[in-house]
């Protein structure tokens, strides 16, 4: 209810008539610097390293990738089956698929936890250039996720190649894809989660969306029995995130669809588009 009420007559304050120079003023002895992205990067690095969720999600990620990778390596090494046609690097796939969920969670939390706790209002007051904060978050998170994934995936890859005897030696290109390629892909997936977290502004909602995006296409495709949907089914399978991830190990479910480094370009395009959207929304919306 908003009945118009005439405001009280204002007693003309004496200071309103005073000239501008008459105002008392305070000048801080601390020098004022011009802020730039570097300041925001330092701030975001402090933030990401000072909460426990970072340690937890990355810790679980490392455990999953190492545990599942080494476990798969040990199983294959001890089995009597013929491994002459097996790429030992592909044994790292399952660890990264499940570990990816942790990176997604951390990505979402990097942005959405600020909304959940109200910290975002403090942050945006301290840095009214909202876009700069998002860019700084993206860079810091991407580097953290990429480095951790690269180290873990490389470790697992070396161990698996050493464990599985009799398999062909992977080529240089295969090595590159199974370490650098997957790490970039998983870190990009995390970055997409960060961006989704910034758009949705709700931790649980954003995590659900991202896990749904990872799993749903495959599950949906499994139930498309109808002949008329065959093409859709094929596309869903080929472009589902698990299949794209497996492309880096050259053991795609299908012969057509993305190959080589294609998944990386797809992820890059999707993330860039989502990032632009999040950036514009952040500048426009009320915090």
């Amino acid at each position: 209810m908003s009945t118009p009420q005439s405001p009280m007559p204002q007693a003309a304050p004496t200071w309103q008539t005073a000239p501008g120079s008459a105002y008392p003023s305070y000048t801080s002895p601390i020098p004022v610097v011009r802020t730039h992205l570097g300041h925001a990067l330092a701030s975001e690095w402090t933030k990401i390293r000072s909460v426990r969720s970072t340690m937890w999600t990355l810790g679980v990620f490392v455990l999953l990738v190492l545990g599942m990778g080494l476990g798969a390596g040990a199983l294959v090494a001890n089995s009597s089956s013929n491994v002459s046609s097996l790429n030992p690097l592909s044994l790292g796939f399952f660890g990264l698929l499940f570990g990816g969920i942790c990176i997604i969670t951390l990505g979402v939390l990097t942005t959405s936890s600020e909304y959940g706790t109200g910290m975002i209002r403090t942050t945006m007051t301290a840095c009214p250039s909202r876009g700069r904060v998002l860019v700084a978050k993206a860079i810091v998170f991407f580097l953290v996720a990429f480095v951790v994934t690269l180290v873990t995936a490389s470790l697992v890859a070396f161990a698996q190649v050493a464990m599985v005897h009799g398999a062909p030696e992977p080529s240089g290109g295969e090595w590159l894809k199974a370490t650098l390629g997957v790490s970039l892909y998983v870190a990009l997936l995390g970055l997409l989660s960060l961006v989704v977290g910034s758009i949705v502004r709700h931790s649980a909602g954003a995590i659900t969306i991202m896990i749904g995006a990872v799993l749903a296409p495959m599950v949906v495709a499994l139930f498309m029995f109808s002949e008329s949907l065959a093409k859709v089914r094929q596309a869903l399978l080929e472009y589902s995130i698990p299949n794209q991830l497996s492309v880096f190990y050259s053991n795609s479910l299908t012969s057509s669809g993305p190959s080589g480094w294609d998944p990386l370009w797809i992820a890059l395009g999707v993330t860039a588009a989502a990032f632009t959207g999040a950036y514009l929304l952040l500048e426009k919306r009320d915090v």
Partner: peptide
């Protein structure tokens, strides 16, 4: 500290 770093 994170707020201080943000504004130098």
């Amino acid at each position: 500290l994170s707020l201080a770093q943000l504004s130098g």
